[in-house]
Simulated assay, not measured.
Amino acid sequence: MARAIAGLDAALAARLSPLSAARPVAAGRATEALFEEMSRLNNELSTAQRALAKANAELAASNEQKNRLMGMLAHDLRSPLQVIAGFAELLEDRVAGRLDATERSCLERIRESSLFMRHLVEDALSLASLEAGRLRLTRQPVDLALLARRNVAMNAVLAEGKGVAIALEAEEGLPQAMLDSGKTEQVMNNLLSNAIKFSHRGGRVRVGVAAGAEGWQRLSVADEGRGMSEAERARLFQPFTRSGTLGTAGEGTVGLGLYICRTIVEGHGGRIQVDSAPGAGATFTVELPVRGPAEA
């Protein structure tokens, strides 16, 4: 029996011997193939990375050219638009009593359209600066309530033309805040003109200025328009975002105003948010710090 087992072991060993010898060779070939595949993939990755870097550089150059073009066009459009709006207001003041209803309506259309175009130009200029990383804030003491009163007066004619009332509630005795006056007014104008745009005839827009938490002031603009869904609110402050609905008088938008508002407010270290529901109007709230970053 022992001899039989020994013979069986010898036979089995003889059969396995070639397989054992082949294993190192096969493993070596597999390793070599693996390294070759890894080298090929690394080369492809390097090529893709170089192509991506080139595409990014071309995209950055194209974006810079676009910003320069937008800036030049906006600057060139601003002056003639101001002239058109100025002469329209002058005509309205001087000859309003001698115009019939149709003529007055045409003159009002000229004035409103030039105002709308001027807002678009200002937004285009702001976008070009923001995308180029050039948001510069010139902070100075600003009376937020006074700024709101001035902005309400500026938009009064637009509101009257749509039959919309504007109510301003400004808390008395607020301290001046260290803000960029021009850019803060741009935020107010965007919010107020939007509120008028989406208000129905006979509606009311409420503007409020009050103290917020300690060291903060709060601006609010509320309308009684169609409101917004949760999905619309989620993308509202992104550039070129439009709700898909025109204003109540058919006014359009390019979807830049609220993006610019958010950027300006956050540049001040502030916050902007919206509270709205379908059919319930919209309330935009802006919170701004009273002191600048160096004073905080």
Rank of each mutant, 00 (worst) to 15 (best):
G71D: 06
A48C: 09
A55K: 12
G281H: 03
T285W: 07
E131N: 11
A280H: 01
A26G: 01
I110S: 04
R235Y: 09
R23K: 07
V25L: 12
T245N: 12
V164I: 12
E169A: 11
R235D: 13
A153F: 04
T138Y: 10
A231L: 12
A210I: 01
T285S: 08
S193R: 05
G215H: 09
G244K: 07
E58S: 06
T102K: 13
C261K: 05
A210K: 14
L137F: 09
V157P: 06
V83G: 08
E37P: 00
N151V: 01
C106Q: 12
V290F: 01
R206W: 04
A177R: 07
A11V: 10
L91S: 10
I110M: 11
Q140K: 11
E36A: 15
E64V: 15
G215A: 10
T285L: 08
T102E: 15
S79C: 04
E214H: 09
Q217C: 03
G208C: 02
K197T: 06
L34G: 14
L41T: 10
A195N: 10
I196A: 06
F116Q: 09
Q49H: 04
L144I: 04
S126E: 02
R204L: 10
L125W: 02
S20V: 03
L81W: 03
F198D: 10
M188G: 08
R136T: 14
Q140S: 15
L144F: 03
A14H: 14
L59V: 06
T47S: 05
L135R: 03
